[in-house]
Design a protein around this nucleic acid. Structure first.
Length: 504
RNA sequence: GGCCACGUGGCGGAGUGGUUACGCAGCGGAUUGCAAAUCCGUGUACUCCGGUUCGAUUCCGGACGUGGCCUCCA
């Protein structure tokens, strides 16, 4: 452990503050993960990469075994149901849903791995945590923060926003003023328009879980039934998932191992992250649920939100035709007429500060590739060397990767002038940031290293015989297979040598 | 209508009350048989209008512009 001071921008206070984990031996972070109904798009990759860099920084500062990073998978969602019905019309719905979520989750893992991300410590699924959600909802009912009402599609357990005096603190919203011009359909079964669903009844033939609630008369609105015990075949609301899973994996299951300081802040953790668009309503509602269920003044100490990725200045959307999945950038020619290596996409994402919008473009990817390749050419073997302190310092100041870049450039320059230590430090730094110190490009089909070596030797022989025409022909031939040759002199003997690399 | 973020050269992106990083692309040069790589050099900017100040890109106010949220959304 080192004494590096990590400062992070907190959406709650709109200020940069020093991270002071409740328990430095167990720094706890939760980030909202994907809803697995379709391929992830490149915008989905941004929070994954941003918080991966934070994860790596935390591990560097506090020790890899002292950081717990939870990123959930949402596999309960009406869009998933719709997709299952569409793609697998012949199958029983639950089976169809499993097919959709398994396939999509596997694709997500493949995509984010290609982008150089570490796996989170825990990756819980909503479907494995229904019991915890039901329990938390019951607590909210018991504490007077939730009620049952009859909605259009059946019974709903709703969060009563009026029961929480400081609801809206994260997004700085005043719900009363909010409604004036907004298109919020009045739902008269709700006590207040801002009340949101915790549990929603499903039609008998639709997927759901049988949840038993005990709900006394005062926690009902416009309900004709009188019995206190209610079994509602239904599914959880979106927000309760994250409240239940963060509680379980960042508190309940590890509470006995936590320090006294952390015990004094029961049910709270250190960092919660996600995209800017989640601030309202998702994170606002998570906070409401978790705080009201546990009677805590806060859910997490620091709330971090990444900015959006735009294409040609606008939000990606299918209707605008500027929508690209991670998979198609990696594997097809749909963007800029070529495939893009995952590490190039990763650097393109990190070139801009995480809270700023990114305009995603071919030019940007090309610049990222040029930069990354120059670093990789300069890097040596990592060995036991240190990660650049300047880079760590830059990241520790609200993940200021852009301020780390000149430091990396300086290392590369030193390495190019023959400084072996700098080359090793550069390699270690690249690995720390999630990049391979060697270019990860792959050879075209039907080309292998042995063939290249033979051809290069053939060319050197031609050069020795001053047959430049033949030598240039060989070089041009290799270039058509994306093999770029680079001649240099052996520093000791002055002999001509040839290096090669793959142009991607 | 309410809330939020942001406006630096062709592009990316730092930073500062006065000396205008850095990188990419461009241009010139070194090196090279020629390339590539590497190295050296080089031009262009702080949205606009007020105010404070000896002096503002930097502080304050306003305008304009862009993007986001208020409905599923990274």
């Amino acid at each position: 452990m080192t004494s590096i001071d990590i400062r992070l921008h907190n959406t709650l206070t709109k200020q940069r503050q020093a991270l002071q984990p409740f328990d430095p031996n167990n720094v706890r972070m939760y980030v909202c993960g994907p809803t697995v109904y379709d391929f992830a798009h490149i915008g989905n990759a941004r929070p994954v990469i941003v918080f991966d860099v934070l994860f790596r920084l935390l591990r560097h500062v506090y020790g890899a075994e002292h950081v717990t990073y939870v990123r959930n998978i949402t596999d309960v969602d009406d869009k998933i149901n719709a997709r299952a019905l569409r793609d697998h019309p012949g199958l029983p719905l639950n089976e169809a849903i499993r097919l959709v979520t398994e396939k999509t989750a596997a694709q997500f893992h493949k995509d984010v791995a290609a982008l150089g991300n570490l796996e989170p410590s825990v990756e819980p699924r909503a479907t494995d945590n229904i019991t915890g959600m039901v329990g938390m909802i019951q607590t909210l009912v018991d504490e007077g923060h939730a009620y049952v009402a009859a909605g259009e599609e059946g019974l709903e357990v709703l969060f009563d926003t009026a029961s929480m005096p400081d609801y809206g603190g994260l997004s700085k919203r005043n719900l009363d003023e909010q409604q004036a011009g907004a298109r919020v359909a009045e739902k008269d079964h709700k006590k207040n328009p801002g009340d949101f669903v915790l549990w929603k009844e499903s039609a008998a033939d639709l997927p759901g879980w049988d949840a038993e609630f005990t709900i006394t008369r005062k926690n009902r609105k416009a309900l004709k039934r009188n019995d206190d015990a209610l079994t509602i075949h239904g599914r959880p609301g979106w927000h309760i998932e994250c409240s239940a899973m963060s509680e379980r994996y960042l508190w309940a299951e590890i509470a006995s191992e936590l320090s006294g300081e952390a015990q004094a802040h029961a049910h709270q953790f250190d960092i919660h992250g996600g995209g800017l668009d989640l601030i309202f309503p998702h994170h606002e509602n998570e906070i409401a649920q978790s705080r009201c269920a546990h009677g805590t003044p806060a859910m997490a100490q620091i709330w971090m939100h990444n900015g959006f990725l735009q294409v040609e200045g606008q939000k990606m959307s299918k209707s605008l035709g500027n929508f690209f999945t991670i998979h198609e950038l990696l594997e097809t020619d749909n963007f800029g007429g070529r495939k893009w290596p995952g590490e190039v996409l990763r650097l393109a994402m990190l070139m801009t500060h995480y809270r700023e919008p990114i305009d995603f473009s071919v030019k940007r990817l090309e610049e990222a590739e040029t930069k990354l390749r120059s670093w990789q050419r300069a890097a040596g073997e990592a060995g036991e060397t240190q990660v650049s302190g300047e880079v760590v310092t830059a990241l520790a100041d609200d993940l200021g990767f852009q301020r780390a870049q000149p430091a990396i450039d300086a290392l590369a320059k030193k390495a190019n002038s023959g400084n072996v230590e700098a080359a090793a430090e550069l390699a270690a730094t690249l690995m720390f940031l999630g990049f391979d110190p060697k270019a990860a490009a792959t050879l075209a089909d039907g080309v292998d290293t042995a063939v290249i070596e033979t051809t290069v030797a053939e060319r050197l022989a031609a050069l020795a015989a001053k047959d430049y025409a033949k030598a240039d022909a060989i070089r041009a031939e290799l270039l058509t297979k994306d093999i770029q040759l680079m001649d240099y002199k052996d520093p000791d003997t002055g002999e001509r040598r040839t290096k090669w690399e793959i142009k991607s």
